[in-house]
Nucleic acid binder design. Structure first.
Lengths: 172, 172
DNA sequence: CATATTTATTAAACCAGTTTAATTAGAATC
DNA sequence: GATTCTAATTAAACTGGTTTAATAAATATG
């Protein structure tokens, strides 16, 4: 069991539910026990997949959560899921009360930061084909649980583009 | 003065110095008081600019710092700089001793995480031209202190590519 | 100041993606 | 099982970058 999870509330989420929609304020922090939630951003009317949160990850729409401003994103349940939820005020109480959990929070943030930094690294240093292959290798289960056009979006491609890459690869 | 900086040691760095080179272990955490340090990664022999750390930012090569493995990157002083330095062991002592500073550390990490997340957002949702214009708007001083080919690298372009974008823009 | 070196631009050929539209394949529903 | 709907592939034209190489501009050095 992840450290500190005893302060969270367990919830089950049905596929298709929106955890967050644009305009909403974000009061909760989540831990994905089992399932999948997809994070979408909207920019100039275009919706893109930014992240898939699967088993074992902490998540929320962090920027509006922290700044207490309305979200500009979606968080959509892509698969029936079990999550643990804690409100921001409860989380703060826990942190106030426990230096150890505050440290755990800091280290978790550090880990999340590194993940993102390495992702930027990949985006900048690898071709789309290489990033597709790497995703296939590192998170093979995604390809079972999520349609390909969402993965294309996550990789920053159109469905057509990803299809071309797959074809190119199959001919080798 | 940034919170906690009293535990750091002030240092001046000459342009051209490497703060970190591939193979080195990273024992220190930095705060840039005044100046500029450039973070480079190497991937398949190709060196790319990942970040410019300028006035007011905390930085180090975080992944090898945390994991205590050799760095695969460069951190090069791009401009005579004044930084504040704290060793990892000293930082940990400070955190052990002060819940408030531990919290400051957590919140700083949170901020850094969000910055990176939004950067991924920009990379995915904006064209190179838009990202160039945004950089020009948000960090205009970079263009005074750093040569254009490094900015091209930072934007994920070749010098030729950036030059084309600039030309395209000047003809409007 | 003249020269050497580094940085930025331009040109030409090329390529990995895009867009749009048509087609095929697969899943869900009656 | 036939129909409808959604997802994936293919084709064709296009585009914003790349690479390589030459040139021009800016900067540093003797």
């Amino acid at each position: 069991m992840e450290f500190g999870l005893q302060f969270y509330k367990k919830e089950t989420l049905k596929k298709g539910k929106f955890l967050v929609q644009p305009g909403q304020y974000i009061r909760d922090f989540y831990f994905m026990k089992k399932g999948c939630v997809t994070f979408y951003t909207i920019e100039e009317g275009i919706t893109r997949v930014m992240e898939f949160y699967t088993d074992g990850s902490f998540f929320t729409d962090l920027y509006p959560y922290i700044e207490e401003i309305p979200s500009e994103s979606y968080l959509k349940v892509t698969e029936d899921s079990i999550v643990y939820v804690i409100s921001k005020s409860d989380a703060l109480k826990v942190f106030d009360h426990s230096h150890a959990l505050e440290r755990f929070g800091r280290l978790s943030m550090q880990k999340a930061f590194i993940n993102n930094f390495q992702r930027i690294n990949r985006i900048k240093n690898l071709s789309n084909q290489e990033r597709y292959l790497q995703l296939l290798e590192k998170r093979p289960s995604l390809f079972q649980r999520v349609p390909q056009y969402l993965i294309a979006s996550y990789l920053g491609l159109t469905p057509v583009g990803l299809s071309k890459i797959r074809k190119r690869l199959s001919k080798q």
